[in-house]
């Protein structure tokens, strides 16, 4: 495994190819935009997508736990796809979540999809959190005072080479701000060249593209 370490506002962070962020000094793992039960949300309108996205997402969280053994885990908002999503988790998935709660402290940041997080999630609930030189919040802010880690935009990057085209999730960063890829199994993405993302970075920024077992830095 080739680690991708980057510096955001003086803090050294590791970008994991699963889309998680690892902060070695704090022994902290961050997951953005997990969108639990996005699949079952569509059943209301008659689309019966495989109802397993939450399980897959939680299994991937658990795999990251196995590798990094975090002391602290953070969900960076939009962890639940809609206000009713937490009611649709079944016993198996609640047990998966409870298990993760026993393996690290958790902080749940609320997002626009889950402004009112259920009280039974393991750990604390917050709107934003500042640690060291970094602020963690769901939506990137317009003004940036210090280093910011955010989600919300689901960045993706399309790489074209040799007549082939590959579209993957990515981190986007200019060294001051980092926008994380969405972690949920059914979450799509927004191209890094989209104005909503570009406007966050006054200078050049890089896309850190998620590969199969490593992260590749490419021009955004």
């Amino acid at each position: 495994m080739i680690e991708k370490r980057i510096d955001v506002n003086g803090e050294e962070l590791v970008l994991d190819s699963s889309g998680a962020l690892w902060w070695p000094r704090e022994r902290m793992l961050v997951f953005a935009d997990m969108h639990f039960e996005k699949g079952s949300f569509y059943a209301f309108s008659g689309q019966m997508l495989p109802p397993y996205d939450t399980r897959t997402t939680l299994r991937r969280v658990s795999a990251a736990f196995d590798f990094y053994k975090p002391a602290l885990a953070m969900a960076l908002g939009d962890s639940f796809h809609d206000r009713d999503a937490h009611n649709r988790l079944d016993e198996f998935e609640r047990a998966q979540l409870a298990d993760l709660g026993t393996r690290a402290d958790w902080i749940w940041i609320s997002g626009n999809h889950d402004p009112a997080l259920p009280e039974w999630v393991p750990g604390r609930i917050a709107d934003e959190v500042a640690i060291g030189n970094l602020v963690f919040r769901h939506e990137p802010s317009g003004y940036i005072g210090r280093g910011e880690i955010a989600g919300h935009l689901h960045p993706c990057k399309t790489v074209n080479r040799r007549g082939q085209s590959l579209r993957r999730r990515c981190f986007a960063s200019d060294g001051l701000r980092l926008v994380m890829p969405s972690f949920g199994a059914y979450t799509g993405g927004l191209d890094v060249r989209d104005a909503a993302l570009r406007s966050l970075f006054p200078r050049d920024f890089l896309a850190y593209v998620l590969g199969r077992a490593r992260v590749y830095a490419v021009a955004a």
């Binding site: 074209n160 080479r161 040799r162 007549g163 082939q164 590959l166 593209v209 590749y216 490419v218 021009a219």
Partner: peptide, 23 residues
């Protein structure tokens, strides 16, 4: 010509990164 039609390989990510490094 086209090497493997329709099968995008991860090598191209490699190349994209290398071209960034070269730059």
């Amino acid at each position: 010509k086209e090497m493997v039609a329709g099968e995008a390989h991860e090598d191209i990510l490699h190349e994209a990164e290398e071209s960034l490094v070269a730059e």
